[in-house]
Nucleic acid binder design. Sequence first.
DNA 1: TTGTAGGCGTTATCAT
DNA 2: ATGATAACGCCTACAA
Lengths: 345, 345
Amino acid sequence: MVTLADVARHAGVSASTVSYVLSGKRTISEETRRRVEQAVADLGYHPNARARALAARRSHIIALVVPLRSDVYVPIMMQIAISVTIAARQHGYDVLLITNDEGPEGVRRVALSGLADGVILMDVELDDKRIPVLRELGTQAALIGLPDDRQGLSAVDHDFAAAGAMCADHLADLGHREVAFIGYGPGVYQRHAGYAERTLAGFQRRAEERGLRFVHRPCEGNYESTAGTLARILSDRPGTTGFVVQNEGAIGPLLSLLRLSGRTVPEDASVIALCPETLAEQYAPSLTAVTGPAQELGRVAVEHVMKRITAAGRGQRPDDELVLLSPVLTVRESTGPAPKRDPET
Amino acid sequence: MVTLADVARHAGVSASTVSYVLSGKRTISEETRRRVEQAVADLGYHPNARARALAARRSHIIALVVPLRSDVYVPIMMQIAISVTIAARQHGYDVLLITNDEGPEGVRRVALSGLADGVILMDVELDDKRIPVLRELGTQAALIGLPDDRQGLSAVDHDFAAAGAMCADHLADLGHREVAFIGYGPGVYQRHAGYAERTLAGFQRRAEERGLRFVHRPCEGNYESTAGTLARILSDRPGTTGFVVQNEGAIGPLLSLLRLSGRTVPEDASVIALCPETLAEQYAPSLTAVTGPAQELGRVAVEHVMKRITAAGRGQRPDDELVLLSPVLTVRESTGPAPKRDPET
DNA sequence: TTGTAGGCGTTATCAT
DNA sequence: ATGATAACGCCTACAA
């Protein structure tokens, strides 16, 4: 293995000079810089990350904690993990994969051992058990998702309220007056990250502003549950012409069931989904959908940790940041103008 | 930060003693062991991974190189990544995520910098550009997938030939005499990892042994291509009653098209797929399928690198291993006894 | 602009 | 059974 000392000897300078040439933390004469660079090339020198990490007190590694099973659609998780990795590389960082089966202890482990300089948490829950650990250890961290208390942390998430509002607007713009919001089962509303609530709240508020009549119906995301939910909606509010689906599992069943009930999409009923593009395009008809930019999530989270690590390295207290990313509405085949009203209504 | 020296002082022993107590590489008197353990607990000592890596010349990190976009179904990739991480932890190792956009240079980087002790390559191609780098650097590595030349490497993959054979057997057992194999488009056969060929070869061989009449038809995996493929099969071989689908993209279209052609599955035609369980269960009717154990892939790859790292650490030349994992046939709703032959045949 | 020297926190070799 | 002590390879005040 070629070391700094070898390079120094070969170039006829001291080891520290080589170090400074490489780090650029000192002004170096053109002459020595050239000599050093030549020596590096001649010997095929590559800095040793272990020694560097020890001496510089920085591993240039961030830990990414991924859920084992989550409410997040798996391809999206992967997309986020990859965008985190690519973004980190652009800052000279590598990414250590931590699975959540280690629980909060996994976070403690990487932070305490000095393996990682910072941590990114995916799939953060409202009352996430990993967060107290971060606080206790003063670990620099960025969250993907919004917890109850984000004091001392930076966080990024989709702007779910805006997404909900966009759904209401789109249906209202198309002239729909009675709409239904098909949400998640009660479990999700209680347990999880509040994204279900935030979406619903955004939808409700905008729906009221736009004068829509609407109902919200929870749904477990399987065929039976969707059938029950739809039946109830259609009997309670037979005039319903617009459907917002938040639960990916309910999309397929809903489309089938609407067809069975004799309704054509989008002529008789419009369906707008809150889901990733790839999913929206899989169905026939393809779905008008509101989608959050998954890659951005990873990119911003990396910016967040990086800022914090840098600040902390300078002895400063990092700012707590919060970024909500705007979703995008893509109109496809599943929404259209509201049908003419029946005489009865 | 609490260091080894702090613990040593607190316990009234030397630093090296503490180190040995922790590593267990020396016999220690009960008395001192107790004192040291007490000191560790009192001070809340945690070994520093960076210093340990430098001194021990072992980072306890393996790099996992994941494809950005691949022929592998994304959830399966994720499953493999996670099983790698979990298996690595059981060996005291952590996993560094490397995306393949760095190309072969990514492998060079982690190996040369000493960041990782070993490397696992996913989605290995027949003529993989990363492999020469591994050889050149003498990096300990395990491959998921089978390259042309695996000299100096360990590899694990599904036994695709066996999977193909299982399909032939299953259809033969059900009494089918004329079957069709719907494969990938020509591109995959040329470019990729040989799994397409291996599956087909296994199928062909067993089909011949079992006296099946069969055709192999490439297919691009979209609706149009599948339609063309099916039409050709049905006109060339109207007596075909069994279909083997290797291309996931063709599954949905095939089912729809069979229905359109007036054939009921499995009464008139049997369909058996080569795909993950989650996919097989998504369709109606659910698909009889041959599936490889994805988690095992990760687990075995980890065993492979671990063995190699250990051997190399002892100055031994590691054995090159090859493991082919047996797939599993799960009978679901899409296959059944061959229909009675038409009088004409 | 460059060099010297003391760490960084562990491991592991040699003594005792 | 335990202790000194020299690496491990690099960084960075402090000097010159």
